[in-house]
Design a protein around this nucleic acid. Structure first.
Lengths: 195, 195
DNA sequence: GATTGAAATGAACAGACGTTCAGATACTTT
DNA sequence: AAAGTATCTGAACGTCTGTTCATTTCAATC
């Protein structure tokens, strides 16, 4: 046997990335073998190398794409009002976007140390650009005398850590709806930086 | 060659755990081999099995001990004043304890999925007891009309995520001292739950 | 100084790892 | 219908994995 019936790269390619995403998120990059990924897709391990240079590239592709998409989505919904309004938009966007992609968030968070040096630098740069968006908002809020934060850098890290942490406990079938969680967290963020 | 000069279990034992701790934190449990740990200690891989049943037990021992120590240390410094005072004590304790043990915190956070089912349950139970301490404080604060939090469970998760996140960016040689970081974060926590 | 027990070696085990590649098969184009 | 190309198999590669164990060495006890 060789080529399978109905096999196409535009079908198998995404399925490889999806399988890698799911498995990496569940067991961790180092704990997942290429043979496991292949089994999930329904091919032999060798076939994966039609879609990725190697295992490392598979991880990097997932993380880089995620960070780029995150930035594009953020910029697409950012508004230009006052700082409080912008912070609310940012907070709600962050929660929604991350709750929609728990596996990608988990990987982007946990697998940084499994990236090669140059791949790490690339992802870290994208992460830095995202954090800079929040720092801009906080700086504006200080100028407007609307916020009281002793250190913009620290506050931005604190807010992002708090919001991203939702993905570690939120369950779709849980006690609270997304809208409720979003509201609770936004109120905490708002008060945390309030003057 | 066999037994080495000056070898003692009371020396090698802790060194095995220390090496495992450092390597697990840096590369992840799955990415570290028993031979790497042994090399760090300066013995052959087989010698590790005088100190641990297997690799899994090494991870579980680190995590369980960490969580138990955390609970003991928390209870040792907890006070019985009003909720605001108790929350401040908790927040400052959490920051200090975690900044002192970045590797343990990292592992307790990241390697949960590499625990066997029963080991996971044991660690998760200890984690739950720690979170319960914070929930108690928040509940008291609501009773005292000192706090305004719409959901105690969610607020406790948000606070812990925010505080624990410090370990992901704090550097000893960085711009801010521990005391400064502690103060900034405590003010954010205080405001976030304020009435 | 002989005996004993703890502590470590070093080789071995069977299996899994990432990756490569010649060859087989299915689809597309001519 | 034939030729060509994209896709996948299946086997192989060298290396590494966690773990076991007979053997050896060191340190303490008698």
């Amino acid at each position: 046997m060789a080529r399978k019936i109905g096999s196409h790269s535009e079908i198998t390619g995404p399925r490889v990335r999806q399988a890698a995403l799911t498995l990496f998120a569940r067991h961790g990059y180092a704990a997942v073998s290429m043979r496991q990924i292949a089994a999930e897709v329904g091919v032999q391990a060798g076939a994966l190398y039609n879609y990725t240079a190697d295992k490392q590239a598979l991880l990097f592709d997932l993380m880089q794409t995620h960070m780029k998409d995150l930035l594009v989505a953020l910029d697409a919904c950012s508004d230009t009002g006052n700082a409080l309004r912008r912070l609310e938009t940012f907070s709600r966007f962050h929660i929604r976007y991350h709750l929609d992609r728990p596996d990608l968030v988990f990987i982007a968070y946990m697998e940084l140390r499994n990236l090669s040096d140059e791949n790490f630098a690339a992802v870290e740069a994208l992460r830095g650009r995202y954090e800079a968006r929040l720092r801009d908002i906080l700086t504006q809020g200080i100028d407007e005398r609307a916020f009281s934060v002793p250190d913009v850098k620290v506050a931005s890290m604190a807010i992002i850590a708090m919001l991203t942490g939702i993905t570690t406990w939120y369950r779709e079938e849980g006690r609270l709806s997304r809208a409720e969680v979003e509201e609770i967290y936004w109120q905490m963020v708002r008060k945390a930086v309030s003057a």
